[in-house]
């Protein structure tokens, strides 16, 4: 399967997994649109929840959202109103990213062999951007890398009048 087709297929799996997650555990309404390719210069966000994966294909699945939306998600999961951006909020975003990536992994592994997921990583700030310089991979740990020239395949979601995105970077692994 061509990489572009596979990415579109994974984006559809991401949308399904996110919808199921919001219907079962987060209990917030959710709508989404078609995935589009987004250059890294277009990404501005407060919170990033990332899970990288390795196997026949490797890449990153990342949730991009505002602090306000991260607080809403964490408050719903903990069934309590959170107003401060604490480590619990980061933990909640990490777990949400992990559940989405985990469900996508199961579908991907059924077609392309066993895969390994990293432990989720959450980064929070204001107006964060994502890039890697000079077309070299920026290695954050042994499994996570961002490819500066590769656009993200980004699925836009809307819930409770808040927009958030889930992006995908994918490459075929060298044998």
């Amino acid at each position: 399967m061509a990489l572009e087709s596979l990415m579109e297929s994974i984006a559809a799996d991401i949308a399904d997994a996110t919808k199921t997650l919001f219907e079962t555990m987060i209990l917030m309404d959710l709508k989404y649109d078609d995935a589009i390719l987004v250059d890294d210069t277009q990404i501005r966000t407060d919170v990033i929840g990332m899970v990288s994966f390795t196997g026949r294909y490797h890449g990153v699945i990342a949730l991009f959202c505002s602090k306000k939306f991260a607080l809403k998600i964490a408050s719903t999961m903990l069934m309590t109103e959170l107003t401060e951006f604490t480590n619990e909020v980061k933990d909640a975003i990490g777990e949400v990213s992990n559940m989405i990536a985990g469900n996508v992994k199961t579908k991907l592994a059924a077609q392309h062999g066993d895969m390994h997921l990293s432990i989720p990583m959450v980064i929070a700030g204001e107006g964060l951007s994502v890039t890697a310089v000079n077309n070299h991979s920026a290695v954050a740990d042994t499994t996570l890398s961002c490819f500066s020239k590769d656009p993200w395949l980004m699925t836009p979601f809307i819930s409770n009048n808040e927009m958030f995105n889930i992006g995908l970077l994918l490459r075929e692994s060298t044998k």
Partner: peptide, 12 residues
């Protein structure tokens, strides 16, 4: 569970 949020959620 390595997620404290998930541990609390299950307890609730």
């Amino acid at each position: 569970d390595d997620s404290a949020v998930m541990r609390k959620m299950i307890q609730r």
